[in-house]
């Protein structure tokens, strides 16, 4: 199935919860691998993922990448790139949350790959994932202040008595 067909199927199953389709221009590859659907209601992302995984026609068996983006306009996004290794099709989903209430339901129960990726998104971007089994920082230490990949992040002057800037 092409990803527009999958989008239509999602739209018929979830209706208003699925937002508009952002088609990427510039070549067949970009159209196929990078066009994404918005999920307007953030709390439905887990249900959408479960549907994509368990629907026999779709059978999305693996999560390729979960990435967080700071949009620069006080919103953060989480992009899910999903792939079906058996059916060889592909779709990307995107949810957008405000910075001051960055909470997204966890999809660790759907694909176990999401576990560390969600921890990384929390560490780097400060997005909390609801019902995640182990919501700790993964790359930085627990006493680190701030989330480095936010656009307004400033390097600390000192960390544990060590000077950080050059």
């Amino acid at each position: 199935m092409t990803n527009t067909e999958i989008y239509d199927k999602l739209k018929s199953a979830f209706g208003e919860k699925i937002g508009e389709w952002h088609e990427q221009t510039g070549g067949e590859y970009m159209k196929r691998m990078s066009s994404y659907a918005d999920i307007t209601d953030t709390s439905y992302i887990r249900d959408v993922c479960l549907y994509l995984r368990d629907e026999p026609e779709l059978e999305f068996d693996s999560l390729l990448l979960l990435s967080s983006v700071d949009n620069g306009d006080k919103t953060l996004s989480v992009t899910y790139h999903l792939e079906s290794k058996s059916k060889k099709h592909f779709i990307a989903l995107k949810v957008t949350v405000p910075v001051d209430n960055a909470v997204v339901p966890s999809i660790t129960g759907v694909w176990s790959h999401a576990n560390w990726q969600e921890r990384e998104a929390w560490d780097m971007m400060g997005i909390k994932f609801l019902n995640h089994p182990d919501m700790r920082r993964i790359l930085l230490d627990e006493d680190w202040i701030g989330h480095p990949l936010r656009k307004d992040y400033k390097q600390p002057e000192f960390y544990r008595g060590m000077k950080v800037p050059y």
Binding site: P148, Q155, M162, V164
Partner: peptide
Amino acid sequence: YHVLKGVDRV
């Protein structure tokens, strides 16, 4: 931000 700028600092 997470790199020590020279090990001679420690």
